[in-house]
Simulated scan of single mutants.
Amino acid sequence: MRVGEVRVDAVADGTFVARRSHFGEAVPAGAHPEVFDRDAAWLPIGCFVVRTGDRVVLVDAGPGPEAQSLPDGMLLAGGQLPTGLRALGVRPDDVTDGVCTHLHPDHVGWLFGPDGEPVSPGATVWFGAADGAHSGDGPGEMAAHVRTGFRRWAGTPRLRPLTRGRRRRARGRGRADARAHARLPDRVGDLGRRAPAAARRRDHLPRPARRAGLAVPRGRRPGSGRPHPRAAVAGAGRGGDAGVGAHFPQLARGRVTGSRLWRSDD
């Protein structure tokens, strides 16, 4: 997908085999047969490559080469990101920036190798400071090799924790949501320089993507400043924006219809 001069490619690291029970007891047995087509939803664990000028930005890094069995016969299996990047013509040395939308285990697995050394040796990794404190140094779940990498490289230019600051909402046509659920703070580095971020609420992409009109739609919970998924969906439906998320079926881009249903553009 191209937006202006920015090219965005989706690439999967693996699969999340999710049962209806994962989404709560309120999901009826026959709900969404187009998603639960094999008695489970086989959802991708997606990452995104954003290329513009001399920058190659990897948004999220999958769960890494691991398979995790979950309750109710569910499975989380990764390991395919290097193959997908190679198919796109992207080598580890080509990646200039890694953007962590959040630090859940299925989004950071390829940031570091088993020895805690960076998989992409020339990349600067951007992440929310509060998220880093919770997952890297606090009680948050994180694979041992990723935690080792975060601790080893803390305080160096390689890791760039982001704190809250000014925000600016991106305007214009052709926004693309390159993340399923993001929790970055209100300001993002301008790939080396400080700059306002393209955002609705607290979510960002690097400045080259911002210039192309890329954004992450989020809404606010009525009566508070907190994001609310329904408000975000409603806003995307009114604007007619195209979007794609890390766990959307087949990593297909699409749009929210007036009835708040997702419809693929492919």
Rank of each mutant, 00 (worst) to 15 (best):
M1D: 13
M1A: 11
R2E: 15
V3R: 15
R7A: 15
V8Y: 08
D9Y: 09
D9G: 01
A10G: 09
V11G: 05
G14T: 09
G14S: 09
G14W: 02
V17T: 13
A18Q: 12
A18P: 07
H22N: 07
G24M: 06
E25K: 14
V27D: 06
A29F: 07
G30R: 14
A31R: 13
P33S: 10
E34D: 15
F36E: 01
A40M: 04
W42E: 09
P44K: 04
F48G: 10
V50N: 13
R51V: 07
R51H: 08
R51G: 08
R51D: 13
T52G: 15
D54T: 09
V57R: 05
L58A: 08
V59T: 12
V59D: 08
P63A: 08
G64D: 06
G64H: 06
E66C: 12
P71C: 09
P71W: 10
P71A: 08
G73Q: 05
M74E: 15
L75Y: 04
A77M: 12
G78Q: 03
G79L: 04
Q80D: 15
P82I: 01
L88E: 11
R91F: 00
P92S: 07
T96L: 02
V99T: 07
V99I: 15
T101E: 03
V108C: 11
L111T: 04
P114S: 01
P118D: 02
A123F: 00
A123V: 01
A123I: 00
A123R: 00
W126H: 14
F127V: 05
A130E: 11
D131A: 09
D131I: 01
G136F: 03
D137S: 12
G138R: 05
E141P: 00
A144R: 14
H145T: 02
H145C: 02
V146M: 11
T148N: 11
T148K: 15
A154Y: 00
R158N: 04
R160A: 12
G165I: 03
R166W: 03
R169H: 13
R169F: 06
A170G: 14
R171Y: 15
G172H: 14
G172S: 14
R173M: 02
R175E: 15
A178G: 15
R179G: 15
H181P: 00
A182N: 14
R183C: 12
P185F: 00
R187V: 10
R187N: 06
D190E: 12
G192Y: 01
R193C: 06
R194W: 02
A195E: 11
P196I: 04
A198D: 12
A199P: 00
R200I: 02
R201S: 03
R202T: 05
D203V: 05
L205S: 06
P206R: 10
R207D: 01
A209K: 08
R210H: 12
G213H: 09
L214T: 10
L214R: 04
V216C: 06
R218D: 07
G219M: 04
G219V: 03
P222Y: 05
G223I: 02
R226G: 01
H228A: 07
P229T: 03
R230W: 06
A232M: 04
A234Y: 00
G235A: 08
F248S: 04
P249C: 03
L251D: 03
A252D: 06
G254R: 05
R255Q: 07
L261D: 12
R263V: 05
R263N: 01
R263H: 09
R263A: 13
S264L: 03
